[in-house]
Amino acid sequence: MTGPDFYRRDRSAHPPAYAPGYKSSVLRAPFRPLHSLEQTSLERSGPALGHAPLGPLDHDLIRNAAVDGDALGERIYVFGRVLDENARPVPNALIEVWQANAAGRYAHVKDGYLAPLDPNFSGCGRCVSDAEGRYLFRTIKPGPYPWPNNGSDWRPAHIHLSIFGEAFTQRLVTQLYFEGDPLIPLCPIVNTIPDATVIERLVARLDMRNQEPFDCLAYRFDIVLRGRRQTHFETRPEGA
């Protein structure tokens, strides 16, 4: 049993493959249109990665690579809900995250930015959504950094997210940005999405009520994955 089909992906709500303002896309975008196929039980099911146990500190990037102290930087929670397009919670979604440190440097062999590494920070974490779709991780706010595109462009502070829902067809990799960052509208990667209202869906909101007092700020970011087509029975209002 793999359930009903999922809605087709609304490609207008995503960046196109070819977005010449982001130069790396020019040689990596297919020329031909995508070939549409019906879903099968393969796409309607997926690996149960979010049902397996995680390490106790996987969700805590401030401590999970610590050698002799906490990671440096602005301490934050990133939290929210994983929902589907029908606004139903997605439990047991696996969220993998990676990010630069507070100075804007990645702990990666290919990152040569002059900003320093933090020996207590790897920038790698994971968490799983609960029965109501809620997820949480703790980290430091990443720094912006320059990259070669149109000369020296600057990435806004961002966290990469990789999400597995219940079905392979829901697979999603994206990046979240932070409310109020003046670099967001200047970024060629953000602007691969031509529609400002769509870009807004990638902006995490400062949420003072959910701070950890005298410890940690909080940013809320809800994630929406593809949803299944509804039967008439399921869409009937309760009591009808």
Binding site: D10, A13, P15, L202
Partner: peptide
């Protein structure tokens, strides 16, 4: 009905 969260590149890291 909600909109799917938009994709962004996985990047080089």
């Amino acid at each position: 009905k909600l909109f799917e969260t938009p994709s962004q590149t996985a990047g080089p890291y």
